[in-house]
Design a protein around this nucleic acid. Sequence first.
DNA 1: AAATTATTGTTAAATAGATCACAATCATGC
DNA 2: GCATGATTGTGATCTATTTAACAATAATTT
Lengths: 206, 206
Amino acid sequence: MLPERTVERLSEYRRTLLQSLEEGKTHIFSHELAALHHNTAVQVRRDIMFIGYTSMQRKGYDVRDLIDVIGEILDSEKGLNVAVVGIGNLGRAVTTYFVGKRSKLNIIATFDVDHTKIERVISGVKCYSLSRLKEIVESYEISVAIMTVPATSASEVTSQIVDAGIKGIMNFTTVPLIVPDDCYLEEYDMITSLEKVAYFVKSGQS
Amino acid sequence: MLPERTVERLSEYRRTLLQSLEEGKTHIFSHELAALHHNTAVQVRRDIMFIGYTSMQRKGYDVRDLIDVIGEILDSEKGLNVAVVGIGNLGRAVTTYFVGKRSKLNIIATFDVDHTKIERVISGVKCYSLSRLKEIVESYEISVAIMTVPATSASEVTSQIVDAGIKGIMNFTTVPLIVPDDCYLEEYDMITSLEKVAYFVKSGQS
DNA sequence: AAATTATTGTTAAATAGATCACAATCATGC
DNA sequence: GCATGATTGTGATCTATTTAACAATAATTT
């Protein structure tokens, strides 16, 4: 199990590397990769050490190989199936956003309680009634949920999600969710993040 | 200057506290606040210690007072003015989201290059041409920018933003931005977060 | 081919962050 | 009023993460 921050950075490195590859770069030095992030060369080397990849010494890392190795770490064999729960403004935007990106993360279904949305295709993905959550999650083997429901129903919907067998949640709502230990939770709270920016701006940050 | 994680948690506590206040709760124990987050009572007390607030011993924290003290730490006197840069699907959803919330963070303006959007009111906020960035930022004293432009123009727009005098950026794009030291940057990358969830689900997390 | 240089991989040290342990406090019951 | 019990505030400890330091390596120069 890798350190959480390392996992985040690997994801970021990969995107930079894909970009570099497109630009025809075949090798990259740790300090180059570091400069493209807010990062030091040592940190990059340490992260890459964690995943057990070793470079062509003195030539830098082979871009294509490194992308592959990061892929082996981050991606699941057949990709991971994801549902978006709550398809209001934010849910729609997020769905569109993810559907646009090529990735091993497949947005398979969306859920809502609004009858005008159910059974329609929204942002390219079919919307189902929340009451069919368990059924759909099981039949499509969905393991991750993106929570974009209103704050008022967040807790209740979370129980249903957990009950349906979801093993990871990315929570866009402002309500801190309570989930069992075997369900990974990523709080992804815009207000907190913006307030954090505000605080460090106010305090003349570091 | 408070620890970054403490700042995040204070923002979260405050929202929980406001909720508790609405429910008529006047006092709250550290373990109660902890249970509402993914957190321990000690951590809560430590965080509150950082901001120098002391409770009614044995009665818990005074909810209203604590909200005020957190406000003094997190909020700026007159609130902070914010611009959303790039008003596509995501930018619109984010704008609507923030405008909806009462807060000391005022979304004052949005920017885009699309002439069909410029000078119109979108999600309740006026959209200006990106070319007027500096002018508007200065006249409205905007200090924080939310970046929701396409990845392809992220770097270029960032230079303009920094040049216009913005002191904090919340970056929704997948491109890691390079900013000077006196500009606080919060990378808020959905793909990274979702890939992180996927990794920990795959690895049967902690 | 020896010396120089740039770069990596990794051990050790430093820093940041979370938790433990417990004295101090004070409401409550006796 | 004294003992009890619940809760806080905080020094000490522990864990996670980052950074420093440097030997090992191999391309490049001389």
